[in-house]
Simulated scan of single mutants.
Amino acid sequence: MSTGVASTQFPRVRRLLDGWKNGLDRIGNQAQFYFRTVGSIADAFLHYKGETLRLIAQMSLGTGALAIVGGTIVIVGFLTMSTGALVAVQGYNQFADIGVEALTGFASAYFNVRLIAPLTAGIGLASTIGAGATAQLGAMRISEEIDALEVMGIRSVAYLASSRVLAGVIVVIPLYCVAIIMSFLAARFGTTFVYGQSTGVYDHYFNTFLNPTDVVWSFFLAIAMATVIMLVHTYYGYTASGGPAGVGEAVGRAVRTSLISAAFVVVFISLAIYGQSGNFHLAG
């Protein structure tokens, strides 16, 4: 009686409490799905090797018409190439204003590795591999294919979600190699060929400030982002509902959530790695 009276007298409070409760329920369901997916990666590796290999080929080079343009590798390569060129343009002009344009090589070695290349690769992963995974799983969910797999005795989470997370982590390693190489080449080409800086000067400052440890941490950051992005996208695709319109809405929500999650991953891991000392030594 008191609950009914309270809901009648204070409808806004009731709606606010119901919104918080629903939000906590969604967070709990997502956490449960993520733990199940991570825990089933071993099953996906042992029992669903063929599906995992197919997903690796599809995510990296693309299948069908996408194979013509190289799939995700070409997309991420062009994205990081454009950001590397921006490092050359902005770095050279800003440093030239104070007479130290020779330090453009330092900007490429420092900012590309620590921030620009990982974030750009994360955006490319979310908009290509991640969105595709959400759309595929969502289409399977609304057409009841996932229910059919479970009726056949196939572990749907391991077969569909864990295999995609595993494939995404495997694909991101060579993918990030292409990304970071393209960012380095674009910055070097823009600085030496467009602005006419000596290649010897550029290479000297680039090699002086390029820390191999930072490159290793950059790969670790890319792998962590790929794991988070694939977990988010597989969840929204696996739980999609509402027909084709619901799948489209799930893709939009997944991209938005994965981009925000990738930004948080970059911030917290960068703070954990570079927050105390920065691992930066001015030399040369």
Rank of each mutant, 00 (worst) to 15 (best):
G237C: 11
I170A: 15
V247E: 12
A57P: 01
F106V: 03
Q94E: 00
M1Y: 08
N29K: 13
G138E: 12
V5Y: 11
S261I: 04
F10Y: 14
K21Q: 13
A102K: 11
T37D: 10
F219N: 04
V266G: 03
G243C: 10
E249I: 04
D18Y: 02
I68F: 10
D97L: 04
I129F: 14
I129L: 15
V69C: 06
A107N: 04
T199C: 01
A226I: 08
G196P: 03
M81H: 04
N93V: 00
Y235R: 15
P212A: 07
L24I: 05
Y92L: 00
G237R: 04
I142W: 07
F219Y: 13
A109W: 00
T134P: 10
G39Q: 11
F33D: 10
E51H: 11
G64C: 05
F106N: 03
A96L: 00
Q9Y: 07
G71L: 12
V100L: 04
L66H: 10
F280C: 02
I75E: 05
G84A: 06
D25G: 11
I154V: 15
A65W: 07
F189Y: 08
T192S: 03
I181R: 02
G50K: 08
L79S: 14
M140W: 03
V216R: 06
S183L: 01
L115N: 03
L103G: 01
I68E: 07
L66G: 01
F106Y: 10
A272E: 05
S183F: 00
T8G: 14
V171L: 12
L231D: 06
T83F: 12
L221Y: 01
W217T: 05
L282I: 11
A161S: 15
L86F: 01
G71P: 06
A57D: 09
Q276G: 03
D203Y: 03
S241R: 14
H47V: 08
G284I: 06
R188S: 02
G64K: 06
G200V: 09
L149K: 13
G237Y: 02
V215K: 05
A102R: 12
A186G: 04
A224Q: 05
L160M: 15
S82P: 04
Q136E: 15
G84H: 01
S40I: 06
S163Q: 12
A31K: 09
F189M: 10
G284W: 07
V76P: 04
T52W: 03
V178K: 08
I27R: 08
L282W: 14
R141L: 09
V178A: 13
A161H: 02
N207M: 09
V89W: 00
M152Y: 04
A88S: 11
G99Q: 01
C177Q: 03
H204D: 09
H47P: 01
A245I: 07
R36D: 09
Y236L: 14
L185I: 13
A254H: 05
Y202G: 01
V255C: 09
I142A: 12
I56Q: 07
V171R: 07
A250N: 09
V87Q: 00
S2V: 12
R14S: 15
G200D: 10
